[in-house]
Design a protein around this nucleic acid. Structure first.
Length: 550
RNA sequence: GUCCCCAUCGUCUAGAGGCCCAGGACAUUGCCCUUUCACGGCAAUGACGGGGGUUCGAAUCCCCCUGGGGACGCCA
């Protein structure tokens, strides 16, 4: 293998379909370290082949977030490079040529099956307890006939002709007499083998003419000279498809190493429902980039000397695949928080902390936006802090002693309120434009969809966001707080409501024997949590102990 | 359901046959420092999923079971 003697070429290939994800940074970090340590190069490639979901805005946020962490790429859409362009939507002609080659070589075929037919096939297969997968209908039709349909304007896709063994339910005339297997070596686990009967005749080119991930990723990795593919474990089962594709093209496949997936507290793949995953959220909440990198590096890797505090360059210097562990690491915010604290007090001077606080909380832009909506509501400087502390604290509602009982939407049950608030977070989640006008529109639509008036719906939201009944207008307050803070605060309150007694009276009695499961709601100041400085600037994310049940 | 991957304290993990009646870190609890809180220091609680092998000897190797995860899209 000559590949191993040359400096490695690796890549991170994010899909720009939303918030910059912490998993992207994690995988990017490992790729970066692997390449840099051996003097190799690190490519950033944008996989925007999903026309419906990809946005330039998301792409920009991803680049910005990786830069924030200090993960520098050698080639990418913004800086170019020898294999430009680095945005797959700009490489369409390349993929089309390669797809045509495959069809010409008999390694792929056109397919005009409709979504309805595919659905039906899948249903039948499931009923027969077979693995769902394309049945090869068009694979065994006369190619000229299919071609004619395409030429006449019938939408069609191109599929990979996966080699079949005779005992394969999807086998046809071209099946081999023996079992066909595909194997590859994963650098972290050794040889992994699949039967082709488990593999679908994968779509390579969609009917909109765009390539699928599988095709684009193989073509680009080959053309860009990628030598090692370090990616998430979720890709293991797609790897045989990629191996087949490399073979179909007659190319040598790169080496593979599948890194364990970041997990929620319940061990499922990390997700925004159960964990903060947006890099923007971490940044917004005051997490330091070097602490973040340290923490991410700690997931699935340990230094031989046992050190736990390390910089990006330490990580680059000492990284080795040999010390990557395979158990899926739970993304534990508690440890991140501790690390962040250490970085703050050990790796930042007082002046740097001042600069940090100014940048995070007391920057002109934020202050100005607050003043704009709060100016007529206070008389002197210290009144301002008393009036609007919630712009600067993480969990104002809980800190004010809220237990969720005053968060029920008027006339709605606990369950209904939960659904209503969940619907609000979902809308906030996708509201990348969080301007006052957009928020206002969002709220109006939300109210309408749930048959509520603003009067009924706004107070609970105001309360959960600020811990106060008197605030500036809700839409403008939300816009100032920003999307990250807003969604965190809504999510943080869901478990509280969840824990409320089943049929709460609108005016729950103040009797002395409250349900034991009601959270402690000490008056502010007497609660040990309320004046805990650690809580300041630290939104309560839904961690294991507080996460709402899925 | 099928295929694939994984399996040490609650969490991140050390451990590549004897150095391990399993070490560190976070979290938790207690004590010390301290006018308070925090930081810091000290200490405690706490794990090799189960069963079979192999071996003089297994957390470490093999098999089975169990558990967890991922994948089964014209999403990546």
């Amino acid at each position: 293998m000559t590949a191993s003697t040359r400096p490695p070429v690796v890549r991170i290939a994010p899909s720009p379909t939303g918030d910059p994800h912490v998993g992207t940074a994690y995988i990017a970090l490992f790729n970066y370290a692997f390449a840099k340590q051996q003097g190799g190069s690190f490519i950033l490639r944008i996989e925007d082949t999903d026309q419906a979901r990809s946005t330039r805005q998301s792409e920009a946020m991803i680049l910005e977030s990786l830069r924030w962490l200090g993960i520098q790429w050698d080639e990418g859409p913004d800086i170019g490079g020898p294999s430009a362009p680095y945005r797959q939507s700009e490489r369409l002609d390349i993929y089309r040529r390669h797809v045509a080659d495959l069809v010409a070589a008999g390694e792929a075929y056109w397919c005009t099956c409709t979504a309805e037919r595919l659905d039906g096939v899948r249903k039948e297969q499931t009923a027969r307890k077979e693995n769902p997968g394309y049945d090869g209908h068009c694979r065994f039709r006369d190619p000229a006939a299919v071609r004619a349909e395409i030429d006449a304007g019938t939408p069609g896709v191109v599929r990979l002709k996966v080699p079949r063994g005779a005992n394969d339910p999807k086998a046809g005339a071209d099946a081999a007499s023996h079992d066909v297997k595909v194997a590859f070596v994963d650098r972290l686990r050794g040889s992994v083998e699949f039967h082709t009967r488990e593999i679908d005749d994968q779509v390579l080119q969609k009917s909109d003419g765009f390539p699928t991930y599988h095709l684009a990723n193989v073509v680009d990795d080959h053309l860009m000279g990628v030598s090692h593919v370090l990616r998430g474990e979720e890709w293991i089962s797609s790897t045989p498809k990629h191996i087949l594709l490399y073979a179909a093209f007659g190319w040598e496949a790169p080496e593979f190493a599948h890194l364990p997936l970041l997990r929620n507290a319940d061990k499922s793949k990390v997700s925004k429902r159960k964990n903060p995953v947006s890099l923007r959220w971490f940044r917004e909440c005051g997490y330091l980039p070097d602490a973040m990198v340290n923490f991410l590096g700690m997931m699935a890797f340990t230094f031989a000397d046992g050190r736990e505090i390390f910089s990006l360059s330490d990580f680059v210097q000492h990284f080795t695949l040999d010390r990557v562990s395979l158990g899926g690491p739970v993304f534990d915010l508690k440890k991140l928080l501790w690390l962040n604290g250490r970085y703050l007090r050990e790796k930042r001077s007082d002046d740097e902390v001042v600069a940090y606080l100014k940048a995070q909380l007391f920057n002109d832009g934020y202050l100005r936006s607050i003043v704009k909506i709060a100016k007529e509501r206070f008389e002197k400087s210290d009144d301002f802090i008393a009036y609007a502390p919630w712009f600067f604290t993480a969990s104002p509602y809980v800190e004010a002693g809220g237990d969720g009982s005053d968060l029920l939407v008027k006339g709605r049950t606990k369950k209904e309120t939960l659904a209503i608030l969940e619907s609000l977070v979902e809308r906030v989640d996708v509201a990348f434009d969080f301007s006052e006008e957009r928020v206002k529109a969002l709220l109006e639509l939300w109210c309408a969809d749930h048959g509520m008036t603003p009067k009924e719906a706004f107070m609970p939201v105001r309360l959960l966001l600020s811990g106060k009944k008197a605030t500036p207008g809700l839409p403008e307050s939300m816009a100032v707080l920003g999307r990250e803070r807003v969604r965190t605060r809504i999510r943080a309150v869901l478990p509280l409501i969840q824990k409320l007694p089943e049929a709460p009276k609108a005016d729950a009695s103040k009797a002395d024997a409250p349900k034991a499961d009601a959270p402690k709601a000490d008056a502010p100041g007497t609660s040990p949590k309320a004046d805990d400085p650690k809580a300041v600037g630290e939104p309560k994310p839904p961690t294991s102990t507080t996460a709402p049940r899925a």
